[in-house]
Amino acid sequence: MHSLELTVNGRSYQTTVTLKTTLLEVLRDKLFITSPKVGCNSGDCGTCSVLIDDKLVRSCITNALSTQGKEITTVEGLSKPGHLHPLQEAFHEKYGAQCGFCTPGMILAAKALLDENPKPSRKDVREALSGNLCRCAGYGKIVDSVMAAAEQMGQAKN
């Protein structure tokens, strides 16, 4: 067993892992942070997506020890008490979540996009979300949600 220290959503954690433990296993099974989902568990579907130092990664194929000392953000870390993140607001307003299983990953992929490109086109959004599969909603309303959030965040800045 090896000692792992990491920060998740601004809080420091210390735990022990094996050489084979994934970041997803640490988040869900050790820290009980369950918004990253176990989907395909092989890096294909994107529902386990988290941000490591603001970069989008698939936690199911990320070795836990490789995140030593890193800052992890899950969708729980986006909202503040009483205040949802504009992306969460927009997904709610525009019905971007249908069954909700892909939603945490979608929102984090969208956040990674908007951090880099605050004024994306619909095509930019589609490209940025192309690694995150949705099986029930058909993507249109998800793209609508991200576009609405981008506009909202742009107005808030001005």
Partner: peptide, 12 residues
Amino acid sequence: LLTEGQIEGGGA
């Protein structure tokens, strides 16, 4: 809204 969601999801 939910009806549209079903139509789009089934379409996909």
